[in-house]
Design a protein around this nucleic acid. Sequence first.
DNA 1: CGTGAAACATTAGCGGC
DNA 2: GCCGCTAATGTTTCACG
Lengths: 166, 166
Amino acid sequence: MANAEIDAIDRRILAILQENGRLSNQEIAERVSLSPSPCLRRIRRLEESGVIRGYVALLDAQRLGLDLLAYVNVRLEKGGGWALSPRSGEATHADLFRAAVQTWPEVVACHAMTGEMDYLLRVQVEDMAHFSRFMQDHLLHHPSVIDVKTSFSLEKIKETTALPIS
Amino acid sequence: MANAEIDAIDRRILAILQENGRLSNQEIAERVSLSPSPCLRRIRRLEESGVIRGYVALLDAQRLGLDLLAYVNVRLEKGGGWALSPRSGEATHADLFRAAVQTWPEVVACHAMTGEMDYLLRVQVEDMAHFSRFMQDHLLHHPSVIDVKTSFSLEKIKETTALPIS
DNA sequence: CGTGAAACATTAGCGGC
DNA sequence: GCCGCTAATGTTTCACG
């Protein structure tokens, strides 16, 4: 669990794995000029220390009928939301909103942001009808939400899960 | 290559793989109540049809020293950029900008967007000093860029590569 | 860090529903 | 067409030098 140092070979292993997470250990070992055993030990260490968060398959949203990607800026009420949940004296508007976000599957990402708006949501849905329903039924209906500003993605210019580790 | 239909079992396989891309075929087969052979055949078909775009390892940005995440809205000059590359009579400002984006490793995502601004960039860097350098040396220096508006991520509320396929 | 052997997973071919 | 069995191949993983 202790965060051991990450040397140049570790970096190369990470760079390979974040492009192709299914290469065999043998293949990776070869590319970084190591034999399979020490290579696997490094990978396991990186996994257990949390540098490697996990392995996933990336799917094609359009081929699954998810043709609409929206970025939604959200501004919240300031202060606590006590009027809404009188018994939980601790719950703020932010707490309520964050909990709600976790339950909405359309929201694939949400960040608290600097600037005029408080949150930036990435929303992935089938089409405009579904987006409209999501806004009406969930986002605009949420008692903590004051204001929203939406932009839609016209074209994906670049999109990678690989971090810049050179 | 022909887009065969995606049935309920395919969906379950996809849902499993986009959460954990390293489960063995045996394990997946068991979870969807199939024997390994047809399960593997389905997975291969999904890979070859492009529904599964690939497999990657997800890394922890903070543990790699990438502590700053910014979303940068960019507005471009309208019209062609002929003055800049007199020989390529076809290159517009948009073309030039998109090509440049591909060469900047800090930009992990870029979408053409509706609304006041033309592009939304997701920029991942070590710290504010690096961000400042990126802006000065690349983004603000680019001849097609008119205006930028940046917001910084204060906190990651939710972040998943898994698409909502229920 | 490297070697070797056991355990495990993937994969292709064939028969049956 | 799609499923499931079996057998061969390749890979991961561990103990040890």
